[in-house]
Amino acid sequence: MAVRPILGLFEDANYAAEAGDALKEANIPEEDYDFLTDAPYPEGAFGEREERHRLYVFPLVGALIGLTIGILMTSMTQMAYPMVQGGKPIMSLPPMAVVTYESTMLTAIVFTIIGIVFESRLPKTKQGLYDTRITEGYIGVLVNVEEDELQRVYNILTQAGAVDIVRDQ
């Protein structure tokens, strides 16, 4: 059976949190529902699951790649063209530091941007179920359930105080 979305709209954030509790009690898996808001509410405000992400890995990997490139590029250049300047050693750290710092930063930035796009699952090709009242401060509780569960979820959302419920056409 196909999975269908259903969106409950709540004027009061407390009722949205209660809807989350009711869905949990009804054994709807936490991965199957989400809270849609127009501003970032504090983590755990709706009693929702803790989201895990790997965004911090991306810049770390990027920085390591850039650091390696920077060290290799500067050291190999200095070995290939050994020019003694001001009595300083061929492999001197200060000039290497300038280039290595920049290459590290550049790759860290690129990988961070890739990480943000990947981890936030953007861009999507279709909007999916949404309601513009969320931009006016309403809280959306979006539930993805099997078709035969739709009525049960509808009832849960209504009982929790949803002012309107939107279904996929």
Partner: peptide, 24 residues
């Protein structure tokens, strides 16, 4: 905007991403 909807995950990545990009 790529059909941003404002899910908890999106806000979380949004916040972490801005902190990282800001620091860089």
């Amino acid at each position: 905007a790529g059909f941003w909807k404002g899910t908890k995950r999106q806000w979380l990545i949004h916040k972490a991403g801005m902190a990282l990009l800001g620091a860089w």
